[in-house]
Amino acid sequence: MNSNILLTHRAIVKLVKQPSAPLMGFGMSLFFLVVYNAGIGGIGSLDIFAGKGYLSFLFPIAIISLAMGSSAGAGQTLNADMQSGYFKRLYFSPASRWALIAAPMIADVLPSLFFTAILLCVGAVFGVTFQFGILSVLGVLLLSLLWSVTLSGFSAGIMIRTGQAQSAAIVTNAIFPLLFLSTTFLPRELITAKWLLAVSWGNPVTYILEGCRYLLAGTSDARFFLIAVVVFSITTIISLSFALSSARKIKL
């Protein structure tokens, strides 16, 4: 079997055997949903939520936090191999250097997608609406994929370039504030601080949130979804280029 396929297969099998990181991401997302919906879900009866309730409005933040808390955010597979020293053993193999980086990235992104799908099912059971049916599901999965690859690529690239597995946390730490500088909990019409509104429009996370809301509750605009796809396709390309170009700068 081709060594690149072997590496990817190994990374996926390892995650299946040790699914703690993606499970933690999934748990964190559910926690967000339950706690915030319980706390301020009552505002869902306001007209601005168009009768779709607060859960459908809040749901996109669970999609975003899922990738951040799961393997994609932490670069778990690569992280584990670097910490154990096994990455060096793989480096001494004939496998191409870009495959050493791409394989764990693929393995990290797949569970993120898998748990997003489960989260969508859970959401559907508890009343999240899907404005365009299956197309909404596919759209949300697409945004989740782009977001996960963006996180995973930057995490992997930073780990490889610094030679330190712990540095993967830089990405999630840097992005974490963006989750709150957005229309995360309230529609823009209810945000009173002008500075937060201004910042939120420059925050790419806003476009994923609003894009998902367009697909789920229909309370946002199609152009946000399109902007999110374009912006995160670009960040995905940048992130992938950053990660794969690190293959020439591996520090061991």
Binding site: K14, K17, Q18, A80, D81, S84, G85, Y86, F87, K88, R89, F92, P94
Partner: peptide, 15 residues
């Protein structure tokens, strides 16, 4: 393919 390397630190997958 030509080389074998056993470095100072163990390079094994503990799991």
């Amino acid at each position: 393919r030509y080389l074998g390397v056993a470095s100072q630190e163990n390079e094994i997958d503990p799991g």
